[in-house]
Design a protein around this nucleic acid. Sequence first.
DNA 1: AAATACAACAACCGCGATCTG
DNA 2: TCAGATCGCGGTTGTTGTATT
Length: 229
Amino acid sequence: MRKPCCDKQDTNKGAWSKQEDQKLIDYIRKHGEGCWRTLPKAAGLLRCGKSCRLRWINYLRPDLKRGNFAEDEEDLIIKLHALLGNRWSLIAGRLPGRTDNEVKNYWNSHLRRKLINMGIDPNNHRLNQTPPRLESSNNVSVSANSSGLKTRQSPRPKSCGGDKDQVSDAGSCLEDEPSRLPDLNLDLTISIPSPSPAKIEKEQKPCSYKHDMLRDSDIATSPALVLFR
DNA sequence: AAATACAACAACCGCGATCTG
DNA sequence: TCAGATCGCGGTTGTTGTATT
């Protein structure tokens, strides 16, 4: 029923070359974002629109910060994840210059493990009954700093699957049993970054997407947040 | 020095939501 | 109102670099 997003025979896949990047940048500078389906052809790229969009959003956008995450960014991600679960675009929307993919990758490769090492279940942000071999102190504070994270431990699972059914409940878990939570210090008074140009544009659209509808209103009224304000 | 294991992250895929004619 | 087109999100996989044995 549903047509593939592009004619796969005629599209490149895999890593982007510098020439391709440049073509995409040039085109978007001239014509702006959007119309991803027709963009590749117009820009002279043998890529599908989806791929172009991803490349632009995650890598080429001029307002991207890139580089290591600061400690306050880590803390914010952890706090927002406790509230929102795996809604990476929402989380990334509150970290200027960061993309959902970047936040997601950072969570899966660093923060998740960090919480586990601290004896905290990264899915629901609760203290585990039986913490795993702790390599550092028993400090339970989520705000612990990120130094010395490079740890070797059991091989990572083939995938992060299994999160699927649990993670989206992170917020509701908080709601359910706040008394069992670790000291999360969910102080979300951290200044809310100004949205990226793309976000601004999106927010100006008459009909916003589901996730945007969740954004400020949901957070503002979230029982979990109210709880920790 | 070579082989292996692991970490990091870029990119792809599938699906649901929304738009549009 | 509805079906197809498009967009955006989250999960997953593939590739590359680095550390360890």
